[in-house]
Amino acid sequence: MTPILELNNIRGGYGTIDVLHGVNLKLEAGQVHALLGPNGAGKTTTLGVCSGQIVPSGGQLLISGREVNGVSSDALARAGVCLVPEGRGIFPNLTVTENLRMFTHAGVSFADIQENAFRQFPRLQERRKQIAGTMSGGEQQMLAMSRALAVNPSLLLLDELSMGLAPLIVEELYERVAELAAEGISILVVEQFAQAVLGVSTVASIMLHGRITRTGPPAEIAEELTEAYLGGTTH
């Protein structure tokens, strides 16, 4: 079966500075792939490439088997590749309902988006009149995820879902991620803190210095993580 997302020897970065030095990654349909690594490894840049925000300077970006190097991020989003960025990417000065209204850009009706968001995250319904920036971090993350889910994505890219959140909230969010994968959505999760994501992922990779140094079952990767973070191994 053709992988839904494939990176072949991807190089890329910001301006003249390359951050990725030949990234290879495969994500099969319905998989949850955890991309782990210390700060500065290039995880967020990899998501930037996958979502079309960063054009790779070399290599191939394949979505559903088609090379899409240079495709615009909005075209990818419309097709069903959705990114939940680090820092959530919501409008902190608007209410939950106003934020949901902003998500109608892809042509989905407001009623559908609202119904979908409140079904997935009932807590958002209780907070619908609240200013998004005043909600808890977990609730903001739920709102950010409901933005991505509003367009019925096939490929979901999650960047540091656990950032600044209490462990219980992180666990709850990852349970939701597992449910989404069970519904058939392929998910690439970038995380610095691995414990929460390894429980729900089907494959995991370690990224160091702009390269994926190891890919394997989550249990095996968990054992190698400490060494990778502290020693910077290059298997």
Binding site: I54, P56, N69, G70, V71
Partner: peptide, 9 residues
């Protein structure tokens, strides 16, 4: 999708 190849920089 329309893909123009793009330019990294």
């Amino acid at each position: 999708m329309k893909v123009d190849g793009g330019k990294a920089n």
